[in-house]
């Protein structure tokens, strides 16, 4: 295998939500402790090779953005390690998180709030590279023009403000801003979720182009399985903070092994599937405050057996699975 660009080793992120004032007073007087711990990401191990695109998929709240933010160094892991070619991407210094590298850039979901509305496009794109001395102040303007052209915008638009662009164009600007930092790794968090299909196609095509020209390495987060299938080499399926299946894209979509992956693929409405073609995953998404014991999917799983509610399955390869999978079905039965 080629050398790993990104290595995530047993990374976890817990958020402690403070109790309300009343609860704190009650606790001080001998009542129960009501601080709650959200297990947003738990023990994720994953590597991304140079030039590879790994898709991250799962239901709302399963920890995709949190993992993305840890990879970008915006959050320090609560435990475990995340490193880019051996260098940690973040550390916790006192209470402040320090981003240790500019080599990872993140593109956020919402193109309407991720750009500073009072900043001209030229400054938005050049601020980071100039600050980090990747380009000189004198060369900044040419650099901006280059970046805008690269993402398919006219260089003459660089004096404009974000509100003068459409959603798809704003997402291009956000990508240009990330690319201007000459990142080794790009984290894209739902980059097309808020866009209309016709505009979505433009942004996905841009990503495919850039990937070919620049050999981008990327983590592509989306809840849209069609989008992830289209752009990723490998896909990690997350459920309640953990990776439950990890495999190459084509075999994963052809013969998903994990019951959750199968259910997820079945619930996507398909063009041309015909009327009434629904097959829903039963039950609700459980809360990360109180993940179910054993396999977290067991309350919704049609195959759950006695072992599933007590013993947590381990992510590993089984007979004829497309990759690795965390399910007792492939490890001695339920």
């Amino acid at each position: 295998m080629t050398k790993a660009m990104l290595s995530i080793d047993n990374a976890a992120k817990r958020f402690v939500t403070p109790a309300s004032m009343g609860d704190r007073i009650a606790h001080a007087l001998g009542g129960p402790d009501r601080t709650q711990t959200v297990h947003a990401v738990t023990d994720v191990t994953l590597t991304v090779a140079k030039g590879e695109v790994v898709g991250l998929v799962g239901e709302s709240g399963c920890g995709k953005s949190t993992l993305g933010r840890m990879i970008s160094g915006i959050y320090a892991p609560s435990s475990g390690a995340i490193a880019l070619e051996g260098t940690p991407v973040a550390k916790m210094a006192g209470k402040r998180i320090q981003k240790l590298t500019t080599r990872v850039q993140m593109v956020h979901q919402d193109p309407f709030s991720s750009l500073d509305p009072r900043m001209r496009v030229a400054n938005t794109v050049s601020e980071g590279p100039v600050h980090h001395q990747l380009v000189s102040a004198a060369g900044a303007d040419d650099n901006v023009a280059d970046m805008l052209v690269r993402v398919g915008l006219d260089a003459s638009t660089r004096r404009r403000f974000p509100h003068q662009f459409s959603g798809g164009q704003r997402q291009r600007i956000a990508i240009a801003r990330a690319l201007a930092m000459q990142p080794d790794l790009l984290v894209l968090d739902e980059p097309v979720a808020s866009l209309d299909v016709s505009i979505q196609a433009q942004v996905l095509n841009l990503f495919l182009d850039l990937r070919q020209q620049l050999g981008l390495t990327a983590v592509f987060i989306s809840h849209d399985l069609g989008v992830v299938r289209h752009v990723s080499d490998r896909v990690a399926i997350m459920y309640l903070g953990r990776v439950v299946e990890l495999a190459d894209t084509v075999p994963l979509f052809d013969r998903p092994a994990h019951p959750y992956t199968r259910a997820l693929l079945d619930s996507v409405p398909k063009l041309g599937a015909g009327r009434g073609a629904f097959s829903a995953v039963a039950g609700e998404i459980p809360s990360p405050l109180n993940p179910p014991p054993g396999c977290a999917f067991h309350p919704r799983c049609p195959f759950a057996g006695p072992r599933c509610s007590v013993e947590r399955p381990i992510l590993k390869a089984g007979d004829n699975t497309p990759g690795t999978v965390a399910c007792h079905l492939y490890d001695g039965g339920t």
Partner: peptide, 15 residues
């Protein structure tokens, strides 16, 4: 322009 209509990794038809 729906990704599932296109071959994986190929450019999508764009309006």
């Amino acid at each position: 322009s729906v990704p599932s209509q296109a071959e994986r990794g190929q450019k999508l038809v764009q309006i």
